[in-house]
């Protein structure tokens, strides 16, 4: 027995930016962006931070679970866009919530949420936890190069959270990595060490080879969905819902075609939110849960893919 997802929560910044807003300062158009990505709007932080969105999402999930922060045995956060290099987001969230359990961060880029679930699975397996909070929070607009029309149109900000409790909804999970930093990366600060050989200060913006990432994403996520469904004892076509990382609507469509999943089973929020890295899956899951469309006994798969390259997928029989 491992865990069930007993509650979900999410938080988005107030400010909504449309494609037409972007066309005011980038050589792009609503038609170009929608055709190639499916994105119509994205939520963009103004006074929100990675931590504030994470705390809001966490509180929403705890409310749904009817739990208080002191009930938590572990907090795992995922982010590539934290407010601090140190301390971890999980420690900031723990402090803000007033919890007193261990807290740690995971950076597995857009697959971070699946990596966090896999780590949590290990804690449940060791009998070390009863209740775990997982929060994925991202301010992708912080590392977006707003001068680059190819990438600036893709990203947004948001946070999603889940509370895990002992249970058997999780039926299979896998994570993977293929060390290849070149197609998708954002450099860290160079620093002012007097001994540093390269004195140039890198711009900490996202760089992406869209075509290569598209190919990795479609091939990996479709194979992962088939694998986790099979390990759970079902065919991928028997899934009731698939909640994938929202990088591009075309990736979702192509992955559904490739693995034989009916397109209407694919959860889509990218049209409203853009790509929010590791926060996409828990936010989309929260939407699915709160809409009342996810019923007890249904099969739902989660799958992520992203920089690294990393990937991860899981299959649940919802309780």
């Amino acid at each position: 027995m491992s865990f069930s997802i007993i509650a979900t929560g999410s938080a988005l910044p107030k400010k909504v930016v449309t494609n037409d807003d972007l066309a005011q300062f980038l050589d792009t158009s609503d038609e170009w962006i929608v055709t190639r990505t499916g994105i119509k709007t994205r939520h963009v932080a103004t006074d929100e931070t990675t931590s504030s969105l994470a705390v809001e999402a966490a509180k929403n999930a705890l409310d749904m679970a009817h739990l208080s922060p002191s009930d938590l045995d572990l907090i795992i956060c995922t982010t590539v866009t934290h407010d601090y290099i140190t301390p971890s987001l999980a420690c900031v969230v723990q402090g803000e919530l007033g919890a007193n359990c261990p807290a740690l961060d995971i950076n597995a880029a857009c697959s971070g949420f699946l990596y966090a679930l896999d780590v949590a699975d290990g804690y449940f397996a060791r009998g070390r936890v009863e209740k775990v909070l997982v929060v994925s929070s991202e301010l992708l607009t912080r590392i977006t190069d707003w001068r680059d029309r190819a990438t600036a149109v893709l990203f947004g900000d948001g946070a999603g959270a889940v509370v895990l409790g002992r249970g058997d909804a999780l039926r299979s999970i896998k994570i993977g990595a293929k060390g290849n930093p070149d197609p998708l990366y954002s450099p860290n600060v160079g620093g002012i060490s007097p001994w540093r050989a390269d004195k140039t200060e890198p711009e900490c913006f996202l760089h992406m080879n869209g075509q290569e990432v598209f190919k990795f994403a479609v091939s990996t996520v479709s194979a992962d969905l088939i694998d986790v469904a099979q390990e759970a004892g079902i065919d991928v076509s028997s899934l009731d819902h698939a909640v994938l990382h929202q990088a591009n609507l075309r990736i979702l469509d192509a992955a559904a075609r490739k693995c034989g999943l009916a397109p209407e089973k694919m959860e889509v929020i990218i049209d409203e939110t853009g790509n929010m890295s590791s926060a996409c899956i828990p936010i989309a899951l929260d939407r699915l849960v709160r809409s009342g469309r996810l019923h007890s006994g249904e099969w739902v798969a989660l799958a992520g893919f992203g920089g690294g390259y990393t990937s991860g997928a899981a299959c649940f029989k919802w309780d």
């Binding site: 055709t35 075509q211 479609v218 192509a254 490739k258």
Partner: peptide, 11 residues
């Protein structure tokens, strides 16, 4: 066909 469609056909 745009660049992503060409990638799909390539795959």
């Amino acid at each position: 066909l745009d660049s992503l469609s060409v990638v799909e056909i390539t795959m």
